[in-house]
Design a protein around this nucleic acid. Structure first.
Lengths: 245, 245
DNA sequence: TAGTGGTCTAGACCACAGC
DNA sequence: CTGTGGTCTAGACCACTAG
């Protein structure tokens, strides 16, 4: 009766404790605001040392399911829906997941002198960059136009990379470690150039994704991606439990 | 030379070990693929027990910065840019963060019989729901139109909740624990009704966010939010290091 | 002030994968 | 086989805070 699922119960003790407590919370047996048993009580209940209980509870606290305070004890958190998580998929994987053939066509590839790049309203002082404008296609139809700057001060290897047959995105993922990124997602109307490139009417709705990536204080790359609104969307499914890994 | 930051070094030992190792990786001293010292070596280096080292390293492994294997040891991971994270902000907080006055106006509030709700192409069998259509305003101008279903089988309290002055979103966040959610983000053209409500032209680009939330197998709520494309965007900044909490 | 979680130790055994 | 991380223990002291 309890093996409809492939019995995915964790083998380790602290993981089982964690799963047990988690299940009681998610089932509603322990509701937000309720106080949980103390570590000493759980230690007796599961017949293990306090360190093991602590590991389980610390893990639950790290994902935000419970909140722990000295003296006050452990209570079930109220879930925070706004702090949701969305994975932004790889373009190629996304297109192929829809059963379409992926295509890539570079339009422009040039060096840009050290100067300002407009991102939002601000101008940013940045070094010399390699600029690649490219189109990504699904079954031969343009779906995405991507403008990408790669800053050579931070990513010197990019000067020699070949982006004729390979988009810069995957190359960067494979070669460059990063520490921080910023995204902006918006709906915009296609201007004349975008409309011509994406083969839509001027003013057609497009999904804009701007991504800027740093390592430390150094900007590595800025990407501006404009998707055909009628051909692309971002989807993500997630739970509050899993970490980032 | 190293205290330009307000010396935010963690007080606990395992956190300091973690921060130290993390800094070496992010600075490039230890590059992706490099093998890190063993736990025994680190134990000697930091003059502490192996459990403490393990706690630090396990934490780094949980966030994906390093990868650990028995016998093979610990190596620095290659960062995976596609598995990025985006926090979806609260509407009210977002509007107020822009310095605008937030407003809320319910347009429709009715019970819907148990039946199908269209989400994407599929029809889903769902129980009786409370349906609320509302408009959210920034400085009196409509910015978002929201259609929300709350399924009473799963959220019985919602039948009695007052949504005249309070949007359903925050109410749900405060009252209902959830386990899973799915988002879809797209750019669409405003239809006649949307255009009239948002005070834009027909065909104007709008940002669509559809969100569906479960607890276990039960659907709790479905929200369809249409933002004025020229007045709203989603932004998020993040690093690969922090967890979800 | 008393009880709680937070941290740390010095050991131990185990499972796994490369040699 | 051997070395690695993974786990667990039985204890200890500390820091914080609610009563």
């Amino acid at each position: 009766m309890h093996d409809h699922a492939p019995d995915t119960r964790p083998a380790t003790l602290h993981a089982r404790i964690r799963a047990d407590v988690e299940a009681r919370i998610l089932s509603g047996e322990w509701k937000p605001g309720d106080r949980l048993p103390t570590e000493t009580e759980l230690m007796a209940r599961y017949g293990c040392s306090r360190m093991t209980v602590n590991k389980a509870m610390a893990s639950l606290a790290a994902t935000g399911l419970i909140s722990r305070n000295r003296r006050a004890g452990t209570v079930v958190s109220r879930p925070r829906m706004h702090a949701a998580v969305l994975t932004i998929p790889d373009i190629r994987a996304n297109i192929e997941a829809r059963g379409a053939r992926y295509g890539y066509r570079p339009l422009l590839d040039e060096m840009r002198p050290p100067c300002c790049v407009h991102l939002g309203a601000e101008g940013h002082h940045l070094g010399q960059s390699r600029f690649i404008r490219s189109v990504h296609l699904a079954d031969g139809s343009p779906v995405l136009i991507e403008d990408r700057h790669i800053f050579l001060d931070a990513v010197s290897d990019a000067a020699a990379a070949d982006f004729h047959n390979q988009p810069p995105g995957p190359w960067l993922v494979a070669h460059v470690p990063w520490t921080e990124a910023e995204h902006r997602i918006a709906a915009i109307a296609a201007d004349a150039l975008t409309a011509r490139t994406l083969e839509v009417g001027v003013g057609a709705p497009c999904l804009l994704v701007e991504r800027r990536t740093w390592r430390g204080d150094e900007t590595l790359t800025i990407a501006r991606q404009v998707f055909r609104g009628d051909a692309f969307d971002l989807t993500a499914r997630f739970g509050p439990k899993q970490g980032l890994s």
